[in-house]
Amino acid sequence: MSRNENLLEVDGLRTVFDTSEGVVRAVDGVDVTVRRGECLGVVGESGSGKSVTFSSVMGLVRSPGRIESGAIRFEGQDLTRLSTREMRAIRGRDISMTMQDALTALNPALTVGEQLSEMLDAHDDDLPARGAARRRAIRDKSVEMLRLVGIPSPDSRLGQYPHEFSGGMRQRIMIAIALAPGPKLLIADEPTTALDVTIQAQVLELISDIRARLGMSVVLITHDLGVVAEHCDRVMVMYAGQVVEEGSTVDVISNPQHPYTRGLLGSIPRLSLRGKPIRPIQGQVPNLVGLPPQCRFYSRCPERTDACLQSVEMRSVGPDRRARCIALTQEEVA
């Protein structure tokens, strides 16, 4: 196994969906790097391709979707070349993902305990081989996981079904299931969107906490820049299937380079803006079918020029900092 600093490397990922209207380029040439132990924030609106990118990493893209090209290397191993069986082993054990909607993501017919045990049974190699000892170990570990995510009296709640828990508790349970096999990478897809602020704060702190304790990497997919600002080391902003800007969180938020990032930051209603007009980005996300090879933000960009009507590559604009805008001059990084 390589001792590479990068846990996950995605190169030129293209995921498309074949629809009756044409080929939808949901993810169009996306590069992602997740370093060991870091928390990467992925920000974008619906249709930006942020979720599809990581469903692709998980090998969860189903027909009519398919990965057209690109490499996904996890610890140096190209996941796109693995068989379904090999992928299944990695999924869950090494990489796990939590879904936005815990109620539909959990199986309503199985108790929380059963779902946890299933995951442990399939992926945890440290358990006794078989028999009562294994069952007891699985149960103990399940209780431990529920306790880890802050569920009160975990012992008695193992036998309950998902619907018997509140929204915040269900989200915790899903995180517990995702964390049970001790993955190296946790992909959290909008983990708090469905939750109230006070609960949201609890769940995000929980994820940060566990990350620090277990030393895993976290990808936090969200539409909320505030969440990114508080919890992520680096951030990647996506728009219409492409990455438009990435860099350290502080940098990107304090000094956004791409007009879309600026627009997004300007769109957030804030107390400090009271009485002043907010400047929303006008218009809507473009149709991802048959896009011309131009800047994708062109139709909505307040700073567009004719030069934007050509395809734009990501360019380096500082150490560890890239953005996709023709107005930026490429900076040579030594």
Binding site: F17, T19, E21, V24, A26, S46, G47, G49, V52, P64, G65, Q284, V285, P286, N287, L288, V289
Partner: peptide, 14 residues
């Protein structure tokens, strides 16, 4: 008007 379907492109079918 470039509306609807695009926005939720991948899930549009659903």
């Amino acid at each position: 008007m470039t509306s609807a379907a695009l926005n939720s492109a991948p899930v549009a079918a659903a």
